[in-house]
Design a protein around this nucleic acid. Structure first.
Lengths: 187, 187
DNA sequence: ACAGTGCCTGACCGATCGGTCAGCTAATCT
DNA sequence: AGATTAGCTGACCGATCGGTCAGGCACTGT
């Protein structure tokens, strides 16, 4: 495996668990068995490393969102969308956890701003413009709750379940949570 | 208002939004119109300030948990418990957001360890020992989702709703989310 | 054999971190 | 009036931060 890739993954893990401000370049370098200078050789700055670590996830989120915004929200598409979104959450749990928890405090970092914008767009689309307080809550709880759950299953005693079972359970819960939202659009 | 109390509140706000590691004593002092030394005069160290900021919330959580563990979980108590718990979430949203998001990374800070233990105890009690993956998920999503939602309502476009309406909505959602859990105990 | 390049290191820089300390001021106590 | 105390400040400390730089090492192409 390439050093750059190692560093990206290690940085993502550390940023997600200890926070961006709480993670020093030195710590990441140590975990990779390299020197701090090696990290700055591959990624010109700490911020560039952050960008590289979460950009793929944000790109995919943007793709999901584009499809969502350009497709009539029929009942069957709702299922397909939720399926893809849950897959996204599982595949990029660390990244999601990062910009959900630290997004507000990392403004003016371009890649984080982009992520925040996407979340806002997603919220606007899912809840529509006339959403009630409860509907907006349902969306926020779904997103924040899933991000939290996926990153604390082990530390909370939730031992890793078979992925298939976990996905099914999460889809059940999210479907139930979001069911009252947007029914006027396609159901 | 006393300086010490000002500092506690400012510190809580900053710790919650920018993270413990990402908040310097100097920043807190500036926001309070004092010098860094004044902060360290009132609170001997940054960690002591953190302790002072979130201890009241953790004390109340412990009280809620004690009542929960010592009361038969009848249907009517379930409602009363949820009511008290939602009140707690609203009253201490910043503290909850803090130790939900940064709890794992702030281990070996005693007051945070205590909070983590309480959350684990709460999880064990609510989901019981034989909980399924989905039941544990429902608990984690409820807790993490509520904490996220309560701290991002403004930054996500969710303008502050009347407190009463917001509480009712949150209780509806949490009741629905947790309904399938623990029915064998008192219903 | 030699130049070039990719990868990496250690020394070093200024800034900022958490924390200590001597001392100032205003109010309180005797 | 004199002593004490609470509240606070600015100077200063060592450690660590993100980042720069010169150079070493291994390999490749000529």
């Amino acid at each position: 495996m390439s050093s750059a890739n190692d560093l990206r993954e290690i940085a993502l893990t550390e940023f997600s668990s200890s926070g961006y401000a709480g993670t020093s370049i030195h710590k990441i370098a140590d975990a990779a068995g390299l020197s701090k200078s090696a990290v700055l050789y591959h990624f010109g700055s700490k911020e560039i490393l952050l960008d590289a670590a979460i950009r793929p996830a944000i790109d995919e989120l943007e793709s999901i969102l584009s499809e969502l915004e350009s497709t009539p929200f029929t009942t069957e598409f709702r299922g397909a969308f939720l399926d893809r979104f849950v897959d996204f959450l599982f595949a990029h749990r660390l990244e999601v956890n990062m910009f959900i928890n630290q997004g507000p405090s990392l403004v003016d970092v371009p890649v984080i701003d982009r992520a925040n914008d996407l979340v806002r767009r997603l919220a606007t689309h899912v809840t529509s413009t006339t959403a009630s307080v409860e509907e907006e809550m349902r969306f926020a709880i779904s997103l924040g709750g899933a991000a939290y759950m996926l990153c604390t299953e082990q530390s909370l005693g939730l031992e890793a379940a078979p992925i298939g079972e976990a996905k099914t359970a999460l889809m059940t819960i999210l479907t139930e949570l979001l069911a009252p939202i947007g029914v006027r659009q396609g159901d």
